[in-house]
């Protein structure tokens, strides 16, 4: 269930309370997020929409522990991340967050399997265990046969699949997808969205996604609109999403 009220589900996987983010540009404060509240349960698939500059990516960065809020609190699976040190936050990200970016951001000098293996290098898994995990992740995204291909030898859609495999290989608590189809044609975008839906449906992943594309957003359980730093609207688009999630 997704809620944008301060009195939302206290047992939600992700709880955001009174989130503020202010940037300074040329000495002038620019408030991007203003007292934002959000609850997301395990297995939810949430899409954030909004015009450019509305704070979608800022919200995603805050939820992923890549940035720190000016005020407010974010709690994930009981871990309050807003007061974590930089080092602890890095460790937390490695355990809990899988990132998927618009431009895929694969390391061009590593093969698909080596790219997918990167998060596992931070674990205590043996080489053979890492190999097994990588093969499983590539199987999920349907790229078993491309394990030894370099990113330049893959299409955009395939690169994004590798990025998704990299995001899920360490079995994170939730996935953050920033415009995952933004650089793809419609057919590839559909394939990627089908894959993300499958991750939610079959693998019980929690996914938070930023997109400009209403067609893509419509495939999420819940669509939240960010305008002027506030979640002003939420639309339930799928029967799978719990009722009463939108404010």
């Amino acid at each position: 269930m997704v809620s944008v009220n301060a009195d939302g589900n206290s047992k939600a996987l992700i709880q955001v309370r009174g989130l503020n983010k202010t940037y300074r540009r040329g000495g002038e404060p620019i408030q991007v997020l203003q007292g934002l509240n959000l609850d997301v349960d395990k297995g939810d698939f949430v899409a954030f929409m909004g015009p450019s500059g509305s704070g979608k990516t800022t919200l995603l960065n805050l939820l992923g522990g890549l940035d720190v809020p000016t005020a407010g609190a974010i709690s994930v699976a009981g871990d309050e991340i807003t007061h974590m040190s930089s080092g602890r936050l890095t460790e937390w990200r490695a355990r809990h967050v899988g990132f998927v970016f618009q431009m895929y951001n694969l390391v061009p000098v590593l093969t698909a399997s080596q790219n997918v293996e990167l998060p596992l290098l931070l674990t205590r898994l043996s080489r053979s265990e890492r190999k097994a995990h990588v093969e499983a992740a590539l199987a999920i995204v349907g790229l078993q046969g491309r394990a030894d291909h370099f990113p330049r030898q893959l299409s955009g859609g395939q690169e994004q699949r590798v990025a998704i495999a990299r995001a899920v290989v360490s079995d994170p608590t939730f996935l953050l997808c920033d415009e995952p189809t933004g650089d793809l044609d419609r057919k590839s975008a559909d394939e990627i969205m089908a894959l993300i839906e499958e991750l939610v449906r079959q693998h019980k992943k929690t996914v938070l996604m930023v997109t400009h594309d209403p067609v893509v957003a419509a495939r999420a359980h819940t669509v939240l609109h960010l305008e002027k730093g506030v979640l002003v609207e939420a639309a339930k688009s799928s029967p799978g999403a719990a009722a009463g999630g939108a404010a």
């Binding site: 890095t90 990200r93 490695a94 951001n105 390391v107 061009p108 990167l118 998060p119 931070l122």
Partner: peptide
């Protein structure tokens, strides 16, 4: 720069 940022994003320490 971008690759290093990704490494840090996915959990590689400074």
């Amino acid at each position: 720069t971008g690759e290093l940022a990704i490494l840090k994003a996915i959990g590689f320490r400074d």
